[in-house]
Design a protein around this nucleic acid. Structure first.
Length: 519
RNA sequence: GGGAGCGUAGCUCAACUGGCAGAGCAAUGGACUCUUAAUCCAUAGGUUGAAGGUUCGAUUCCUUCCGCUCUCACCA
């Protein structure tokens, strides 16, 4: 075989792959294993960068410490005959490597000449500064560890096509340090949640993902169906963590949390992926009021830990997470809009007397108007009016707690002692998204039975997002669940807020896409 | 599921009113021992998402399909 690939080669992707395969063969002929293993990599680029951040060229020249050994992907390559600069990227970032033929030797330089953008390489050498001042490794040893057969995206614009970024996340992550940062922040967010809750004496648990049909409740959503062959058992993928975690509260664990994937068989959009990550935590002897304080403290601290500040810019709007967060009353705001004055019971009475025409009068949106026809209870109508008329007006520069939820849309929440048509519940909104939902837990087994009955009746009317009647959960409550409060937090949405990502797909490593074969 | 937009070389993008499908980066050959969007000379790279239609002629116009993005609905 010739020493170098021949001129006249073409550059379609197939040809580029073939050329790189030929280079791998040439490396083998030179005794270099293009997919070797077992190399010891003693340092990261970040280690070198930090250690020599303040050293000038003269100081580095006097440095007599052992040479550094780093490995990573070649993301830039500039050759000037017998000297080459390459940018090497490892998990900590990039560092320039300066390879001179007279320093590494002829054979290593031949290997270098067979190196392509995207290859994984190893370099050993002392730190130095180039004449323009860039910290670099001056290689005395150069090895190729992995031959890449496909080219990297264009160096200046990178990979911008969303579809390719999501389908080939490995390319996206290789090409973009910003994308890496997003996912590192997501990881830091989850670690921060664990630290925060562990400090409060919560224990992390794992509950089943595979639910029997009667267990697949805890939220208003349609589940995915699956099947266990050996038991010949139809199963659902969980839509929430709630009912199992509360069984653990019955069992006396008192403070539990789970961070886990849940699955909802519904539409996909900027805020929704069919599988997403929820934090749910339950605390015995706490009320939903306690959880407002916990939530604003936790989220504000997470914002600081993940982004460096408790003020975050999301899609051009600054959001201040520092406690206390403002509150708004779902009942109160709706009552105000419909002229229902007085105490909460009086407001509820007045709203219950409204005719369909009166409810619909202030709502212009056609689809919201159509949706009204499907509503049965007064509580559903209050939530509907809040969504149509109040939610769009919520402040954008702060998270906000919405309180005073009606009973009918809260089948697992405790009734308020002062007004049993309401429940002790809040939802937290930020950046136009619901980020948390919490309530004092319903622990009266007979009341819970009545709520399940209402769900089953709603299902009979055609509602597809009702909860099943979970008899074992009732049995658990019959054993006595201490008074408790619990909360669910959408991890993906916090990740969006803390990385200024417009789509959930930007914070999920491998979002669900339709198959690509059929393009 | 409804509506709007987009799909051209490995990547990022052009192509006027329907008239030979082009550039930069990447690639290939050559020069170059301090470059950093390296530079210089040369070369090559296309089923224009797919199928059909209109037309002398389609990247361009029409139909259907596929995928993505935005949006509405559902939801967290």
């Amino acid at each position: 075989m010739a020493d170098t690939p021949q001129a006249g080669a073409t550059s379609s992707i197939e040809d580029q792959i073939r050329l790189r395969e030929q280079k791998a063969d040439l490396l083998r002929e030179k005794g270099v294993q293009p997919y070797g293993n077992g190399i010891v990599v003693p340092h990261t680029t970040g280690f070198v960068r930090i250690r020599h951040a303040d050293d000038d060229a003269a100081q580095l020249e006097e440095d007599q410490s052992e040479p550094y050994g780093i490995a990573g992907r070649v993301v830039a390559l500039r050759t000037m005959g017998k000297a080459t600069f390459l940018s090497l990227r490892d998990r900590t970032g990039d560092l320039q490597v300066f390879v001179k033929k007279d320093k590494v030797g002829d054979q290593a330089y031949e290997v270098l000449k067979l190196t392509d953008l995207g290859d994984i390489v190893f370099a050993r050498g002392r730190a130095m500064r180039t004449k323009t001042g860039e910290l670099s490794i001056e290689a005395t040893e150069y090895r190729l560890l992995t031959k890449a057969l496909r080219p990297l995206p264009e160096k200046w614009h990178g990979l911008t096509d969303h579809e390719t970024r999501y389908r080939q996340r490995y390319v996206d992550l290789s090409a973009s340090l910003q994308v890496r940062e997003i996912f590192l922040r997501r990881t830091e967010l989850i670690a921060g949640i664990r630290r925060f809750l562990e400090d409060l004496d919560f224990v992390e648990v794992e509950t089943p993902v595979l639910h029997k049909p009667e267990e697949a409740g805890g939220a208003a959503a349609r589940p995915f169906a699956t099947h266990h062959n050996a038991l010949d058992l139809d199963l659902k993928l969980r839509i929430a963590l709630e009912l199992h975690l509360k069984r653990l509260i019955v069992g006396g664990l008192e403070r539990v949390y789970e961070i886990g994937r849940v699955f909802r068989n519904e539409g996909i959009d900027r805020r929704h992926n069919p599988e997403f990550t929820m934090l749910e935590f339950y605390q015995a002897y706490a009320t939903y009021e306690d959880l407002t304080a916990l939530t604003e403290t936790m989220v504000s601290r997470l914002a600081t830990e993940v982004t460096g500040a408790d003020e975050v810019t999301f899609q051009g709007v600054k959001i201040k997470f520092a406690p206390p967060w403002p509150r708004t009353s779902m009942l109160g705001e709706v009552a105000k809009l419909y002229g229902a004055a007085g105490t909460q019971p009086q407001q509820l009475d007045a709203l219950a007397r409204l005719s369909a025409g009166q409810w619909l009068a202030p709502v212009e949106d056609r689809q919201m108007r159509e949706k009204f026809a499907r509503l049965v209870s007064s509580g559903e109508k209050i939530a509907w009016a809040f969504e149509a008329l109040v939610e769009p007006m919520l402040p954008k520069d702060r998270p906000i707690f919405v309180v005073d939820f009606p009973l009918e849309i809260s089948p697992l929440a405790r009734k308020r002692d002062s007004e049993p048509r309401l429940v002790d519940r809040f939802e937290a909104f930020a950046g136009g998204m619901e980020i948390a939902n919490a309530f004092s837990e319903l622990n009266d087994p007979r009341d819970q039975e009545a709520r399940f009955r209402a769900q089953v009746e709603a299902a009979a009317r055609g509602d597809q997002e009702t909860m099943p009647w979970d008899r074992d959960y009732i049995r658990a409550l019959e054993h006595g669940m201490p008074p408790a409060a619990g909360e669910g937090v959408g991890i993906d949405r916090l990740a969006m807020l803390f990385t200024d990502s417009p789509s959930i797909r930007d914070v999920v490593l491998f979002p669900l896409l339709k198959p690509e074969e059929s393009h």
